[in-house]
Design a protein around this nucleic acid. Structure first.
Lengths: 224, 224
DNA sequence: TATTGCATTATCAAATTGTTAAGCTATGTA
DNA sequence: TACATAGCTTAACAATTTGATAATGCAATA
């Protein structure tokens, strides 16, 4: 997860989108919007937001359906989903929470309260580890995009850095090629088979051959 | 974090404590209670709950003070704190959330909604334990794609690993040859009769002859 | 003894990854 | 604008690993 949090707003009322968008952007969030359920799913896949604000009643798929579809995909397991709806009904709220929503807010809501809620929810997930993580002799500063080996700074390109940061986030864990593609390139971009290899190659040139090992037929892992 | 989640309820009204306690225990939670702010802090330190339900107005230290004190101690960084209060005021809600609360619920609240909220919050902090399977002297790490025997790592090819992981998922159970084919090769691919044998052979070479035994005419099983 | 089922080995095809060089794109600069 | 540059992707081919099969052997059993 990057430093700037990305929020997807899905609502069929343009006014709501505008008000929320304005307020969230004012707090420094990156905002993506969708006008209906299908667009919400599409945008979610393409942009991988950190938090999704879902209206319950939308044309096409409703909020609950969107929530269920996303929750069934492991990429969205960590994504926060918040309902924002005019339906002030206890049973709907319970059903939403049981279906994987992280919060249920009712309209009308003051922007200030919404911002507090959003911030409170994101605070929890921010525990994606500290911005600087240390693995073996490496220090990976995710805020400054710098890797250092025994104190010496090594300059990596953006994709290279993201790849290292991903693999190093769970040293030892084997990341499947598909997993890597999804997390770094997303599902909307399609890149060739050799793209990952080439980046791995460059990383190995810069950080040493031993830092990343290949598990054939499976993926790559960062060695401790 | 253990499997059974521990919840601390701090409220000066015995009735509230009793109702909440009853409902939470009914869902399988372990419940600790406190009658005021100081007792809440004391019990929190003593029992290290996973979630704390805090009343705002209590004798001695009020909810917000308790929240601040706990949030300043790193042991409670991961502890969920939820306010449950009769004060239905926007500014108080915002201030609570800004001070580190994870949710702000107003009385009266239906037990069902509260339970949903609690469950939704706890779902997020669920610690995903490593997917390591231990069978006899073997450790099978499905995340790292590594099998180790008495601490020594053994490298298996993908099909070999999948076969071991399958058999070891239910040690002692005899897996039919067809079952194995279906689970590892799927129904699309058709492979010859000797394919499984050969893989079993390679696994036995690497893990030892005794780990997998043949049940003639039936299939194979992982020995404990 | 003949039969059945599995074990073993060698061999070859297929799948997968490594490596280098070249092309493309966006961005900055004179 | 034209040029330079860095970064990303792809192409092409090499190297490596893996997987499937065939041929043969062995052991238990009818």
């Amino acid at each position: 997860m990057s430093i700037v949090k990305k929020i997807l707003i899905a609502d069929d009322e343009p006014d709501i989108i505008e008000i929320l968008s304005y307020n969230l952007k004012g707090e420094g969030y990156e905002v993506v919007t969708a006008k209906n359920g299908d667009e919400a799913i599409e945008k979610a896949k393409a942009t991988k937001p950190d938090l999704i604000i879902l209206d319950m009643m939308m044309p096409g798929k409703n909020g609950l359906e969107v929530c269920n579809i996303l929750r069934n995909q492991s990429i969205f397991a960590g994504t926060l989903i918040v309902f924002l709806t005019a339906i002030n009904d206890e049973n709907t709220e319970i059903k939403s929470l049981e279906n994987g929503a992280d919060d249920y807010l009712t309209k009308p809501i003051s922007p200030k309260v919404l911002l507090s809620k959003v911030s409170s929810l994101l605070r929890r997930v921010k525990t994606d580890g500290p911005s600087i993580l240390t693995v073996g002799d490496f220090e990976i500063d995710r805020e400054r995009y710098i890797v250092s080996l025994k104190g010496e700074e090594i300059i990596l390109a953006r994709k290279e850095f993201e790849l290292v940061a991903l693999l190093a986030s769970k040293p030892g864990k084997v990341f499947l090629r598909n997993e890597i593609l999804n997390k770094i390139w997303g599902t909307e971009v399609i890149v060739g088979d050799r793209t990952i290899d080439v980046h791995i190659r460059k990383i190995r040139q810069k950080l040493g051959e031993e830092c990343i090992s290949t598990v054939k037929g499976v993926g790559y892992k960062f060695d401790i």
